[in-house]
Structures are given as structure tokens and as C-alpha cells.
Design a binder for these strands. Structure first.
Lengths: 211, 211
DNA sequence: GTCTATACACGGATAGAC
DNA sequence: GTCTATCCGTGTATAGAC
């Protein structure tokens, strides 16, 4: 299970030299690549090890199991992932605050597509490991934001929308460009879909949200 | 590879009794369930066989390999999947035609969530088997539709939008409710997200598309 | 056509030398 | 800490009896 302890370091608080930290980092980096491409079951320790430049047993010296690497990745993911949501300012101008959120989220798809796909893989397959976080932290954050949005609507500073479905729209539209990347590129027959995407999403949300 | 031959029956044109058809059908049905939940590698013949009420060797009598079942499913998927796109009428009223497409697509997410997730799994992991279809048929259909949409915009019957990114928006918004189902339910803490989704998407696209 | 038994490869994890 | 060798479970696929 995920999200129970704050530090991901197994509690032992071992001294941790720089070189150890570096190798653990390399493993997570490799794991991110492999897990995001193949999903949990599709990934192999062989590939992760070779990608990280380590032998398989050596990799298992740093992380005790495949599961452990995967869970460490999910844990790390959640912080950066939920961050942009926190950055929405209830005191700001509603439409601009939400558009800023959309922009940050789209940028994350461009800059961290592997993280997005890792998350997508986990959810599509039923979120076997990350479900508690969805029902706990995520729902809590969305509930809080929903109240803010409803306040904005009541004040007439935002067009009336269902706040939670609005969130789903932001997530799906932005993450689509990372998760369905190959399809997007195949259809567009172009290299970088993001300039077009940014313009399109700005237009879409401005039209939806402007009172 | 997918989409080369029209019939999925391996060319032998064997007589095919009703009972054989029924078993092949049961296998595909079971395969859809298992592959959509676990992805290609995560699925096992054991689970598919037991789900279909067959022994494993018996299953392999009807389909020669795991790959064969998977490819048969992808092939079958594409027809129903691209169908709603074909149903858009260039002679109809633009906003209503596109809203109809959105509605049909959302209904497919509700009625065939396993198909949606099967497709999502395939694409997220780089579309190793279905890429040719994306670059061929899908791109072709989107290109044709894009011209229709551009015509509508030129006539002032539709607000100016990038036609291809509009398609991405329809796909991501509607399929999100099938693919990220567990997340949607976790956040909403409710059972059936679809009534809310339909209202929301109708509002969203009407606002976006009305000139 | 359908079963039991089994071959065989792959992958996660461990043992133990260095 | 890092390696080589290896164990062993799981999973695809086949052999061969019925």
C-alpha cells in the first residue's frame, strides 16, 4: 500500500552515502522509464537493471523487490502530481487561476510524460496499489477545491459548472497528450503537438469558464 | 500486425459449426475482460480459459496463441470504435452533429468500458500492434472530418477551433469516464458518474462550438 | 474436440564467493 | 557492495491418450 509513511526510506535511517543515493536515484529513473512503457507486470528487473547500468542482484541490494521500486515511484509521483492543484489561489481571479492550472498541467504532460503514463497504467488497471490515496488525499483536495469553485460561481465570477467534472476535464484533456502521445502524433503527422494543444485548451476553457 | 485482412478467420474458411462459433465467441468475451483489466502481458491464458469455462489446451485449440486472441479483439474493436465517427453527417447542423458524436462516444464508454480500457492499454504502452491502423485508417478519417469542420467554420456555422485537437478533446473527455473509472468514482464517492458527465460535456461542447 | 501431463522459457529472488 | 550461479514459481505452448 502507498502513502502510509512520510519518508520512503524504509524507516531504518541508514547513513546513506552520496554514491548510494545516486544509485537509488538511477534505479528510480530507470524504473520510471520501464514501468511507464510496460506497466507493472510488463516491466522486468532485467530491463530496469540494464537501463540503470547495474546487475540484477545489485539492483535488488538497493531495493528489496520489484514491488518496492514501483511503490517508491508511485509515492514520489504523488507529490509533484498534486502540487499544481495546491497552487490554485482561492483569492485570485477565478478564470485565470483555473487557466493557470490547465497550463501547468499541460506543461507537466510535456515535461514528464513518463510519470503521466505510469499513473495512467496504474489507474486503467484498477489502481490496485494507489486506490487509498485516491479515496483519501485526492478526494479531500478535490472536495476543498470544489467549495472554492462553488463560491466563485455564487459570486458570479465564474460560469456555472460542476466542479468535479471540471477537474476530470482538466485532467483528461491535459494528460491525454502524454498518455495517448503515439496516437496524437500518428493523427497529426507532426512532431510537437504541444503548441497547438496549448492554444486549443486555452480557448476551450476560456469559453467554458468565462461567465 | 493488425488490419491487413478483412476477415479475421485466418483464411482457411473452415466450415465452422454453431458450437464452434459460440466457443470462439466465449473466448473473445473472456479475453476482453482479462486483457482490459490486466493488459497484454498481465493477462494469462489460465484466467482467460477459466473465465470462458474451457481448459487451457482447449482454448489453444480454437486460437493458436495468446497473441491471436489479442489481435482478434483489437481487430473487432476498431470497427465499432470508429463507427460513430462515420455517423457524422456533413450535411447536418454542425453543432448538433458534433454534440451527437460526443453523446454516442460517451455512451460507448458507459456501455463498453472494457473495450475502451483495452484500447487505452494498447496506446499507453506505445501501440505496438495497432500503430499501422492509427497512421492509416484513423488518420485518413480524421483528415476527412477536419475538412468538413473547416468548411463549417468558414461558413460561420461553427466557432473557430482546431479540428484535430477538437477530436482529441472528444476522445479524451469521453473515454476518461471508462479508462479512469476507478479514479472518477473515488473522487465523486458516487456510483454512476454518467448523468453528471453527460450534462457537463453537453455544456462544455456547446459553449466551445456555438459560433 | 477435449482432456492430462509435460516440455520449456522467462523472470523474480536468493546463495555465497570475492 | 558487487558479482556468478542458481533456485523455483509461473505461464505459454505442445504431446499424445481418449
Amino acid at each position: 500500500m502507498i502513502g502510509k509513511s512520510a519518508s520512503g526510506q524504509s524507516g531504518k535511517a541508514a547513513p546513506q552515502t552520496r554514491i548510494q543515493r545516486a544509485k537509488r536515484e538511477a534505479i528510480l529513473e530507470a524504473g520510471l522509464t520501464v514501468f511507464s512503457e510496460a506497466g507493472f507486470r510488463g516491466a522486468t528487473l532485467d530491463r530496469i537493471a540494464s537501463e540503470a547500468g547495474l546487475s540484477k542482484p545489485n539492483l535488488l541490494y538497493y531495493y528489496p523487490s520489484k514491488e518496492a521500486i514501483y511503490e517508491a515511484l508511485l509515492r514520489g509521483l504523488l507529490e509533484t502530481w498534486l502540487d499544481p492543484l495546491q497552487a490554485i489561489d482561492p483569492m485570485g481571479e477565478p478564470v485565470e487561476e483555473l487557466l493557470g492550472y490547465v497550463r501547468r498541467k499541460l506543461q507537466m504532460s510535456r515535461d514528464f510524460p513518463r510519470q503521466s503514463r505510469l499513473f495512467a497504467n496504474e489507474i486503467v488497471q484498477g489502481a490496485p496499489r494507489i486506490m487509498p490515496v485516491l479515496e483519501g488525499e485526492l478526494r479531500g483536495m478535490v472536495d476543498r477545491l470544489a467549495m472554492v469553485i462553488e463560491g466563485w460561481i455564487a459570486e458570479g465570477r465564474l460560469a456555472p459548472v460542476d466542479p468535479r467534472h471540471l477537474m476530470f476535464s482538466v485532467w483528461s484533456l491535459t494528460q491525454h497528450y502524454a498518455d495517448f502521445d503515439v496516437q496524437v502524433r500518428a493523427v497529426l503527422n507532426a512532431d510537437d503537438p504541444y503548441p497547438g494543444a496549448e492554444t486549443h485548451l486555452e480557448l476551450l476553457f476560456r469559453r467554458l469558464l468565462t461567465p
